[in-house]
């Protein structure tokens, strides 16, 4: 589970106190989530058993749709529109 916590959020408070949270980026969307160290893994959201990535609570139960595939679809749509605009 610790391998999924790829980021670090550091808050420097008004009196100089430093608070750090490990973060993970959802494998199905770009959401970044701060988590408590050694917290309950169930609080993270979920683990997609198809792509084996940690996902946020918004993506739980929606099927496996990795973020890279979403990017490819978005870029393909953009390039298709751009091609049509250039042709017409």
């Amino acid at each position: 589970m610790h391998k999924a916590l790829t980021g670090l959020g550091t808050l420097i408070g008004p009196w100089g106190e430093i608070t750090e949270w490990p973060t993970f980026t959802c494998g199905h969307c770009p959401n970044v989530r701060r988590v408590q160290p050694f917290g309950d893994p169930a609080d993270l959201g979920g683990l997609c058993k198809i792509c084996m990535r940690v996902i946020c609570e918004q993506c739980v139960g929606l099927g496996c749709d990795p973020f890279e595939k979403k990017l490819e679809r978005e870029e393909a749509s953009y390039h298709a529109r751009r091609w049509i605009e250039e042709v017409t």
Binding site: L8, I12, T23, T25
Partner: peptide, 15 residues
């Protein structure tokens, strides 16, 4: 307060 979020460049977790 100020805040910083960082992941390893080139590693997983980038936006």
């Amino acid at each position: 307060a100020s805040y910083r979020w960082v992941v390893a460049p080139g590693g997983p977790g980038e936006i």
